[in-house]
Amino acid sequence: MNELWADITAIFSAANLWILLRVVIVLAVGWLVGRGLGLLIGRVMRTRGPHAVQLARRLVRYFVFGATLVVALSLFGIDVGVLLGAAGIVTVAVGFAAQSSASNAISGFFLLGEKAFEVGDTISVGETMGVVLSIDLMSVKLRTFDNLFVRIPNEMMLKTELRNLSRFPIRRLDLLLTVGYGEDFGRVRDILRGAAVDNPFVFDEPKPMIVFNGFGDNGYTVQYSVWAARERFLEVKASLHAEVVAALSAAHIVIPKPRRHVELSSGDTPILVRVADSDAPAAPSSGASIGEPSSS
């Protein structure tokens, strides 16, 4: 017991405390220098976009802090070379224990290398859509449009289909309309073309595409595709639907309601259909407008 107490007091001897103080100072200075250098690099690289700035800042900070740690360990009298040798063995052991973390870290490097998206881009991964807040070693952080914070592991980012909505400056908006068979397609095409011209955010070129798309249950279908600037896309999406409906309605062009063809399994026996009187009492729930043949 006395020996243990002597060992503990020896650790906290004046000489060791001085070393400890120097280590703390070295770590604090390293942290400050890393942070300062990171900010400086970020300022120099600000024209290259937030993604490059964030990446450069982190690399500089990690590098400076790693170097500081080596210096601090050497102050304790620890041989860094031996430590690095031991680290190799530890890495193998940790690698087995933390396969998913290692996979995320490696996936993170691939993601950075691919440059499929950058900080500030709007992306869609699986069912999640949002703005990229940061691309980190283990995960990508998003802010969804309903203001939720979402963390997606890098491994999943690499395996899942990813859509970058901010990559190109213009986007196409597709509307699929159903128009009654009685309506003239040429007239519908002119009205849709007019709606595109009247909306200042719909591009004149590439030209709006109006295509007879096929025969539907209730009418023929028309694909109506227009182009708009990425920044205006939602605005166009919100306004154009309403404008198209208003323009078709003003021209008395019918957007048909769904119809269903019903066959009753009554064989060859005709079914009597009776129109109920408007002032007649309400029909019983068993159904009267298409009812049994009258017995009277």
């Binding site: 955010f201 719909v202 591009f203 004149d204 205006r232």
Partner: peptide, 22 residues
């Protein structure tokens, strides 16, 4: 009056956002 937007460039990936004068 606010002219309509249009795209001027060789493709939908490369080009310049412009106004169109009809």
């Amino acid at each position: 009056f606010r002219p309509s937007d249009t795209w001027f460039g060789p493709s939908t990936v490369e080009g310049e956002l412009c106004y169109v004068s009809r």
